[in-house]
């Protein structure tokens, strides 16, 4: 067995990476059933595909969490809620 103790794994960080992996897998499955990435021009005037929208959602969410941490600190339920709403908004309108 390979020793991975140097990577200092924790359950929460592992769950985070599993979530990212699941997002990418879901995108692959989605693409399989609806190929082409459904490109469109959204409210920001950007040409985005599904993958772009996922990227914008994840990057934006990261900054929502950072801003909340910087201004208010933990717990992070509120930024989680904001990020989910933001993610849906990006997939719907951007």
């Amino acid at each position: 067995m390979i020793d991975l103790s140097w990577m200092a794994w924790t359950w929460p960080t592992a769950a985070f990476f599993v979530f990212i992996f699941l997002c990418l897998s879901a995108m692959a499955v989605w693409e399989r059933y609806d190929p082409g990435g459904s490109p469109r021009r959204g409210v920001l005037g950007l040409d985005t595909t599904r993958g772009d929208r996922l990227f914008i959602s994840l990057l934006g969410s990261a900054f929502i969490f950072l801003a909340y941490l910087g201004f208010f600190g933990t717990p992070l339920w509120i930024p989680l809620g904001i990020s989910i709403v933001y993610g849906f908004a990006v997939f719907k309108w951007v």
């Binding site: 103790s5 140097w6 990577m7 200092a8 794994w9 924790t10 929460p12 960080t13 985070f16 990476f17 950072l66 941490l69 910087g70 600190g73 933990t74 992070l76």
Partner: peptide
């Protein structure tokens, strides 16, 4: 991934880590 793991923990070396949550980010 390792950097992400380190960012939520404290270590004094020797591969021993202590959970700190979001403390370092704050």
């Amino acid at each position: 991934m390792t950097v992400v793991n380190y960012s939520v923990q404290e270590t004094f070396g020797d591969n021993v880590f202590f959970w700190e949550g979001m403390k370092w980010f704050e």
